[in-house]
Nucleic acid binder design. Structure first.
Length: 486
RNA sequence: GGCCCGUUGGUCAAGCGGCUAAGACACCGGCCUCUCACGCCGGUAACGCGAGUUCGAUUCUCGCACGGGUCACCA
């Protein structure tokens, strides 16, 4: 069997759309699960849209996601160059071959004529389609115009009747009438190939066996078939994948700042979680497990699990998956990722960041949530005394005041050198036993006093230990004062 | 508008003529607990509509509706 070769062929726009990344992922997976090659080709034939540095964004993102290519512009390969603009010379030859075979023709219609044609169609309410004016020019006429240096394009000769059937691995056979197809341009006036043409030629020259691409190309696919047939080339396996949507009507868009890989990184998601999640958009694994590493995806992925309808991007689900990945992080890794976020709100140096991390890891869904969760370590927030009232803990303002007042001497009795979680815990529970009350009656008010929050990473003991004796007593005093007022 | 494609809970989705129509996320309830989470247990919730084909349609066919895509010297 022929070696599987797939390619990812992005345009350098400076922006890695999530949909494109997913296409790259699927493309990569198909190659790797068949011990094939994954090829990176940069399609930069649109000079107007070219963005400086955009290729680096592509390199960086693919590498970060683990999608290492086997051949590409930077590492070369047997069928280079891998940048389309550097291949420009070769396309024209193929187009001229087609002309010689009678499958294509020179067209000298200028923009003006085409514009009037379009205007005319519009006026008559018809859909515009090139009228094939130059298709029946005689050889002499063509030669004369060519010799005179008249600008031209090369167009594909589409049969005037009959049907074309295109096969997609997912959608099956798609048949359209040739009359629906236009004599599309292969080579532009500037001598550059159009996307459709360059694509077919490059894929063939690079020995691509499987093409994964967005659904928007499905409609132009039959024309590809005609092109392959005209050349007498083998047609690769095509797999069209549906779009990723923001909601039922709208695609994920650059405008909304949620469509690119970089946006997601900025929002505090883990690379692995993003890769895992986008694999799940439009694809369903066979079993019930849905958390997969890249290597596992290579084994699990199957194009028959791909969906034929668009998928809506659900940030909530991404968040849930992200949380699972964060939980699996080693404490060291977690600390590495989390520390900058913790430091956004915790500036004091006398605090055990690693302990904060261990309290935080299981409750972190997205890193950007962290600063808000730990801001009280630096500064006790303003809070109302209603926080002290908790039904389940059986606390109210009165017994909270009582609790805090009874806690003060206990904490003061702990030596500075013994100020640690174990001692604080033991002393407090001695107090609880001595008073014969529920744990919460003592612990809830302390936790509130020390944090000023409804919920915190860690309980009263951990927080007290972290912020130190002096700060703890100060905060408890503030709580007492608050409860005494009115 | 022409052509192409699609339509299972709020979301991702399994299903490929006969099922109490999976699972995950979200949501709700419970347990655990020095808070909130985590974790564990349980629950609510779906086949767009109408005709066929068939003993039997979520599954096959047709029509309709709705949604998407495409109709460039852009990719």
């Amino acid at each position: 069997m022929k070696k599987v070769r797939t390619r990812f062929a992005p345009s350098p726009t400076g922006y890695m759309h999530i949909g494109n990344l997913r296409t790259a992922l699927f493309t990569y997976l198909i190659a790797k699960q068949n011990d094939g090659d994954f090829i990176l080709r940069i399609e930069d034939t649109d000079r107007e849209r070219y963005v400086e540095g955009a290729v680096d964004v592509i390199y960086k993102t693919l590498k970060q996601c683990g999608l290492q290519w086997d051949e590409g512009p930077d590492i070369g390969g047997p069928v280079g160059p891998y940048v389309q603009s550097e291949r420009m010379g070769m396309f024209k030859k193929y187009a001229v071959d087609l002309v010689d075979k009678g499958e294509a023709y020179y067209c000298f219609c200028d923009k003006e004529r085409l514009d009037t044609l379009k205007a005319q169609c519009e006026a008559e309410g018809r859909t515009y389609s090139y009228d094939r004016h130059c298709r029946c020019l005689s050889c002499e006429e063509v030669k004369a115009k060519l010799d005179a240096g008249t600008p031209y394009v090369i167009r594909q000769k589409i049969p005037t009747e009959g049907q074309v059937t295109f096969h997609d691995e997912l959608y099956g056979d798609i048949t359209v009438d040739c009359t629906e197809l236009e004599d599309q341009i292969l080579i532009k006036t500037d001598g550059m190939p159009t996307y459709n043409f360059a694509n077919v030629v490059d894929d063939h020259l690079m020995g691509i066996t499987h093409v994964v691409r967005g659904n928007e190309y499905l409609a132009s696919a039959p024309k590809y078939n005609l092109l392959y047939k005209a050349f007498g080339w083998e047609v690769p396996t095509y797999i069209h994948v549906e779009h990723i949507m923001k909601d039922k009507q709208h695609k994920l868009s650059k405008r909304d700042g949620d469509a690119s890989f970089e946006d997601l990184m900025n929002k505090g998601y883990l690379t692995e979680a993003v890769v895992n999640y986008i694999a799940l958009l439009g694809w369903a694994p066979k079993g019930e497990e849905e958390i997969f590493t890249l290597d596992e995806l290579i084994k699990e992925f199957d194009i028959h699990g791909l969906s034929k309808s668009p998928a809506i991007f659900d940030p909530l689900k991404l968040t849930a998956i992200n949380a699972k990945y964060i939980k699996k992080l080693t404490p060291e890794k977690y600390m590495e990722y989390a520390t900058p976020y913790i430091r956004q709100s915790v500036k004091r140096e006398d605090i055990d960041i690693s302990r904060i991390c261990s309290l935080l890891q299981d409750r972190t869904e997205v890193f950007t949530d962290i600063p808000e969760k730990v801001d009280f370590f630096d500064k006790l927030p303003e809070y109302g005394k209603e926080l002290y009232v908790h039904k389940k803990m059986k606390t109210n303002e009165e017994n909270s005041l009582e609790a805090l007042e009874s806690i003060v001497p206990v904490l003061q009795g702990i030596d500075d050198k013994d100020w640690n979680e174990e001692t604080i815990h033991d002393k407090l529970f001695e107090l609880i036993a001595q008073k014969g009350v529920k744990n919460g009656v003592i612990m809830w008010p302390l936790r509130v006093a020390v944090s000023g929050k409804m919920s915190t990473p860690g309980g009263a003991v951990e927080i007290a230990a972290l912020i130190g004796k002096a700060d703890t007593l100060e905060r408890v005093a503030k709580g007492i004062e608050l409860l005494k007022n009115n």
